[in-house]
């Protein structure tokens, strides 16, 4: 089972963290800091695996981002590389040639995609198409709500909230982004 996944930049800035085990915040920070320094110090020629405490660390760099996973002793480290690659492919498809900035500004989307690929630290879906369809459908749900909200705002639907002239054009999904 994967214990956690971290995404961080070459500058050592954390971009995404997904924990499948319960640790206190302080320990999470310590582990993150420790791994980021260790991995950034490794030379590009070195292999992608580290033995760290009783875990195996598998990491791979894609452009300016490092993807780093901690797996247990009996897990297959080569498969973990494939999981990372699959995740990168999904991000790439979703954002259209993904870059670090996409993940910074849409970090919640990056989490949503990861949650369709892995659940509780194990792979839940192996088809890229199915994952992207599920994400698209959920995004659509959000947009429908936004449109509905906007219609309600301008009074075409029975509204639930009090609105003013100035917020008429405001569309609901702005609330998030």
């Amino acid at each position: 089972m994967m214990q956690f996944m971290l995404l961080f930049s070459r500058q050592g800035k954390l971009r995404l963290q997904k924990w499948y085990v319960a640790h206190p915040d302080k320990l999470k920070k310590k582990i993150t800091r420790e791994l980021i320094t260790t991995i950034l110090a490794r030379k590009p020629k070195m292999c992608s695996f580290l033995e760290w405490r009783d875990l195996k660390i598998v990491y791979k760099r894609y452009a300016s981002l490092y993807f780093c996973c901690a797996i247990e002793q009996e897990d297959n480290e080569l498969l973990t590389l494939e999981v990372i690659h699959r995740y990168v492919e999904l991000l790439d498809k979703y954002f259209g040639s993904v870059c670090e900035l996409d993940i910074i500004f849409n970090f919640e989307k990056a989490y949503f995609i990861l949650d369709e690929l892995l659940l509780g630290g194990e792979i839940q879906e192996t088809s890229k198409k199915t994952i992207l369809k599920a994400i698209a459908a959920q995004d659509l749900l959000q947009e429908d709500e936004a449109v509905e909200g906007a219609l309600r705002d301008i009074g075409l639907l029975r509204k639930h909230r009090k609105v003013s002239l100035t917020t008429m054009a405001l569309d609901n999904h702005n609330r998030l982004t």
Binding site: Y111, Q138, A146, N172, H173, R175, L176
Partner: peptide, 13 residues
């Protein structure tokens, strides 16, 4: 759904 999506994400984090 938008609220739930972010709410659950926040809960996990």
């Amino acid at each position: 759904f938008t609220d739930k999506r972010i709410g659950y994400l926040g809960a996990m984090l």
